[in-house]
Write a protein that binds this DNA or RNA. Structure first.
Lengths: 142, 142
DNA sequence: TTCTTTGTAACAAGAAAAGTTACATTAAGA
DNA sequence: TCTTAATGTAACTTTTCTTGTTACAAAGAA
């Protein structure tokens, strides 16, 4: 179960950009907030850019979201950074001479897919704006 | 971002045991069907055993399920082999001097949890008996 | 032109999963 | 009781994937 932090870092990046909408922030600044290397940030921003979620241009620190935050779901961000990767891994090369071996992959693929789709459906209902709102509300309570 | 193949191997093991209920099968036999090492099989069987899903005893090849297959869900198997591992990983040590940094973990933990719970709820509805049924149905079509 | 920043490639380090070896323990049967 | 065959586990290696790092080209602003 190797789980990447790309999604959480990507959400962090997007939230930070939106909250600092007035200021120009650099990948170095974001990296300091996330606590990682600037290249890790640029790499993820590059994926977000390819998915049309944000804009940036070389040489100049001018990054902004391409859609209002209440139109960007965690699913959008998730797909941007994880692509069509399947959550559930299925073992390779089961024995084709066995009834289970030659059918298990297709069957599990079908079942696992159902589970993944419900999870993705849930992510579609969670918007970046809500995440930002929750960040601000938690901040008040601190 | 993937769940290990432990779940798929575990389901394979359970289905194989149930389908071969009349015969005694060894971890070596199962390993040949899964296409892996017998120790990998025993390791996973040990976890299934600890969760009360199957019985086995040292020295003797006498393995069987402890519940009818229509009372064992993929969720049961999933929890047995993956425990309480979270699907979505959140980056560690974000900067506490930043409003996003000091709140992102709590917020994402909350949101990701919702997504994980829906996924798990779906797994609860998929029973080992269905998986076995699908294996048999696919077999007819081959 | 100089400085700063982005965009990427290439590689290193780290962590987790899977595979392997080894061996103690247990049971069955000769 | 001795032999054989199986499980249960520990320890170690290999592999794979993610994350971190270095390096540098390209772009823009002053």
């Amino acid at each position: 179960m190797t789980v990447s932090t790309k999604l959480s870092v990507a959400v962090h990046i997007m939230a930070l950009i939106e909250i600092n909408r007035e200021q120009a922030i650099t990948s170095e600044y974001i990296a300091a907030s996330v606590h990682t290397n600037p290249v890790v940030i640029r790499r993820i921003m590059s994926q977000l850019k390819k998915s049309g979620l944000l804009h940036s241009s070389p040489g100049i620190s001018a990054t902004y979201l391409l859609k209002p935050s209440n139109e960007i779901s965690l699913y959008d961000i998730y797909k941007a950074v994880e692509g069509d990767q399947e959550i559930f891994n299925i073992h390779k090369n089961p024995n084709p001479d066995c009834i289970v071996g030659r059918n298990i992959q297709a069957v599990l693929n079908h079942e696992f897919n159902k589970a993944q789709l419900t999870m993705e459906a849930e992510l579609k209902h969670i918007y970046l704006s809500e995440v930002i709102q929750e960040i601000k509300e938690r901040e008040k309570k601190l």
